[in-house]
């Protein structure tokens, strides 16, 4: 770490003036054009707040709680920043012109989705958090639960389920848990070529432990995964729709019939539950 001098940033040669004008002009025109266009578009739609409905919602929601003083100022600053950010992003001429064709190109040729969507093979779409859950660490592993301790999502689901089951049981109601498999668990070959020959259904490593634990505690669990994979194998057709996370109608009907049979078999239906 001892001897290299800091390199100079001085120009190596005096540039041609027209090149400097071209570079500075293109840069300035692009940014200023974006700003003026965003203002123009927003005005046409009735102002910043109208152009960005979400900012209206957040403004109302936090306006009540932001209060005065330092914290209120901080909250209002954040809201103003978020509104301005969203409006400039959504209303600039470049964004309004290229967003749709670029998104279409990125999805079809580059398989690039978004924060919510993973683009699979053959134009199949997957919900990113669901895929992350499937390939992620076991959701009941202590380090995973500890890392999520402070957050609202991915908390340990067991206490709440067992608590609800006990509460319902006290009123003579049986709780039936149906862990709905994520799309990639049943249709992995449409996401990854390497997953074509896998044994289906795929699952997060903690899912089996959760089911086992719930059943051990007397909670009824109905797992539709084998039915969905069975439909695929039998018919050769997918169980899920390609572009969203719903089941195909025939798959939904078959799971419903199986669930009805499970309920008839496992849950006593002749006694009306205590309305409380």
């Amino acid at each position: 770490m001892a001897s290299l001098p800091t390199p100079p940033l001085a120009p190596a040669a005096r540039p041609r003036r027209w090149l400097a004008i071209a570079m500075a002009g293109a840069f300035t025109a692009t940014l200023l054009g974006g700003l003026i266009g965003a203002i123009w578009n927003a005005r046409r739609e009735g102002g910043w707040q109208a152009a960005h409905p979400m900012s209206q919602e957040t403004g109302t929601a936090s306006g009540a709680s932001s209060g005065d003083g330092w914290r209120g100022l901080a909250t209002r600053t954040r809201e103003a920043a978020a509104t301005l950010d969203a409006c400039t992003a959504e209303r600039s001429p470049l964004a309004t012109t290229v967003r749709q064709p670029l998104q279409a190109w990125l999805a079809s040729w580059a398989r690039q989705g978004s924060a919510q969507v993973v683009v699979g093979r053959d134009r199949w779409l997957f919900f990113r958090p669901a895929v992350d859950h499937l390939v992620g660490p076991p959701f009941l592993a202590p380090p995973f639960l500890a890392a999520r301790e402070g957050g609202d999502r991915h908390r340990d689901p067991r206490p709440a389920i067992l608590d609800l089951a006990a509460y319902l049981k006290g009123r003579g109601i049986a709780l039936v848990v149906v862990p709905v498999p994520v799309k990639a668990a049943i249709e992995p070959e449409h996401l990854s070529h390497g997953a074509a020959d896998e044994v289906l259904p795929l699952a997060n490593p903690s899912l089996a432990a959760l089911q086992h634990e719930l059943e051990g505690a007397g909670v009824l669990v109905f797992d539709p995964s084998p039915i969905l994979t069975g439909i695929k194998r039998r018919t050769g057709k997918p169980a899920y729709l390609a572009a969203d996370t719903h089941w195909r109608p025939e798959a939904a009907a078959e799971v419903a019939q199986a669930l009805a049979a499970f309920l008839r078999e496992s849950v006593p239906m002749d006694v009306a539950p205590d309305p409380g």
């Binding site: 390939v135 990854s192 070529h193 390497g194 997953a195 795929l202």
Partner: peptide
């Protein structure tokens, strides 16, 4: 499920 990771990693983009 690790085999699914390829679908997230090796996209043309």
């Amino acid at each position: 499920a690790a085999s699914l990771l390829g679908g997230l990693l090796y996209t043309p983009f």
